[in-house]
Simulated assay, not measured.
Amino acid sequence: MFVVARGVLGCGTVFLGSSGAPLITEIAHSHHRATATALFNTSYALGSIIAAWTTFGTFRIVGSAAWRIPSALQGLPSVIQLLGLWWVPESPRWLISKDRSEEALEFFVKYHAEGDENDLLVQFEYAEIQSALAYERSIDRGSAIKNYLEFLSGNAFISYYLSPVLTSVGLTTSLEQTLINATQQMLSWVSALYFATLPGKVGRRVLYLSSLSCIFLCLVCITAGSAVFASNPNNKAADSAVVAFLYLFSPAYNLGLNGNNGLYITEILPFSLRMRGRDCYHLFSTCFTLLTTYAFSVGLQNLAWKFYLIWVPWVLVEIFVVWLAFPETKGPSLEEIAIIFDGLQAGGLDTEKLEVEIEQEEVKKTVDVAK
């Protein structure tokens, strides 16, 4: 029953991951879109904190309550989400795609203009989305399978196997391991919240490259420290260095691969491919999770610290791919990002004049408020 329950949880997670980030991206105000979407995945760390401290307390319990209590607590966030979901508006882009344009316009007036129907930003967003969706309809391939074909034109071992990594450097007791796990998750959450505010300020590409570079440094130091400890178990400096860089690994990952990842995947895809893109992302992510679950434990057992050497060059490959193939998306609106990939015809609307008028109106509002 426990294994089946984990499978059901996994299915639910895929649905939430595929729909949550696109919905936030599509309903957020243009000035808040980057930070709002990047915050989407940061609550994972909050859940990890609760789970880590719960297991820190329950591992002392003799009997099935040791794992039943942490498992039962997982239901609370779902109850909160189910209750709150009734007050979440539908995506205006989805409404327009279903010929419910009046409802979409009402959304923009209510949530993006505080009830002002004549707001230039509302008119701009409404017209831009209509034009972009009209362009997407004109190039639609006519079937789900053909549309999926459009997509053809490593931190896991530390996250999933913290316990054996700690064991390899002499930290073997449940007290030590659960305490490190709990405090590490607290650092992870705080860093994830702060770093979610950065994509709109410094750009997505910069965060990707910075994060992967920091991950590379952490992996090299963890590998080196583990190797030194394996050759000399009395070397406490090596032990401490591994623990220190295990703590730093989470902030390094959160810098550019937590919230920034969900934001970038969501915004580089046009409306017709957005949900499909998230589905593909979760498909490959789940396949990789299966690999980490069943294969990595064997690698750690047989190779110990040498198993980490697989990931050091892999991160270098990721850095090269990001540098070569990931364009910056900071600045343009959600619809205008398509122009970066498909050219000016993808936007379907000459927005330069409207953008100037919006900037002038915002300056005027700022001056009025100052007066």
Rank of each mutant, 00 (worst) to 15 (best):
T266R: 09
K365L: 09
Y44R: 07
D350H: 13
F157C: 14
D99F: 05
S188P: 00
I339N: 06
L263A: 10
S285Y: 13
V242D: 04
G7C: 02
E352G: 11
T289Y: 10
R60V: 08
E355R: 15
A252K: 03
A28H: 00
A196R: 08
P233G: 02
T42Y: 03
G347A: 15
F296V: 15
K330H: 04
E136V: 03
A144F: 10
A230N: 08
S168Q: 08
I49P: 00
L349D: 01
L269Y: 01
F124G: 08
T54K: 03
K98G: 00
I337W: 09
G331C: 09
A113N: 11
S191Q: 00
S64K: 01
N181Q: 12
N260F: 09
E117M: 13
F151I: 14
S153N: 13
T25G: 06
D119H: 12
F151T: 12
G115F: 12
V62L: 10
I27R: 06
A38V: 05
A196F: 03
L219P: 05
A237V: 11
P313R: 09
I96Y: 02
A134W: 04
N232D: 15
L217S: 04
S168K: 04
Y135G: 04
G259L: 07
G12R: 01
G115H: 12
L246T: 01
Q360V: 06
A182Q: 07
L219R: 01
